[in-house]
Amino acid sequence: MEFISQPWPWYVAGPLIALTMFILLYWGKSFGMSSNLRTLCAIGGAGKFADFFKFDWKAQQWNLMVVLGTIIGGFIGQYVLTNPEPIALSANTVSDLAAFGFQNAGETVLPPELFSWESALTLKGFSILAIGGLLVGFGTRYGGGCTSGHAITGLSSLQLPSLIATISFFVGGLVMIHFLFPLIF
C-alpha cells in the first residue's frame, strides 16, 4: 500500500496510459477525451444551432462512462490513495512561480491562487479559468483532438496529422507560459 499511495513515477504512468488506449481499441473504441465535450453539447440541445451537433450521441455513451469513471478515479486518487507528500516540483519551478505570485507551489494539486473559490470568483481569476476552458474546448475540436486523441493515440499509430497537432499543442503552451504568463501574472 505504501508504494501505491506514493506518487507514481513516469515509467509506470506512461505505459498504463498506453494500456488504457490499447484496451479501448481492443473493445473497438478509439481513446479520445475531448469528443465528450461535443457529445455533452449535443445532449444539451446544441443540434438546434449547428449541424455539427446533430449526430447519434447515443453511440458515444461508452465514452461518457469513461468520463464518469475518471471522476470516480479522481476521487479515489485524492481521498483513498492520497499522496502523502507535496508534489516534488523542481526548485526552479517553485522559484519561477513565486516570482509570478504563486506561493508554496506543489503543496496542493492545483494552485489556490487560481482555483480556490476566493480567487476563482474574482474578475481576473474567473477570466483566467474561463478563457483557459474556452481555448481548450474550441482548440481541441478545431484541431480534432487533445492529448489523448492526438499525442497518445495518433502518435502511437504514427499518424502525421497527430504529430503536427502535438507539436502545435506544445508551441501554444510555450507561447502561453513564456510570453503571455509574464503579462498575465
Partner: peptide, 8 residues
C-alpha cells in the same frame, strides 16, 4: 486548433 488548445 492545436495551437489554441496548447494556449488553453
Amino acid at each position: 486548433g492545436g495551437f489554441i488548445f496548447g494556449l488553453g
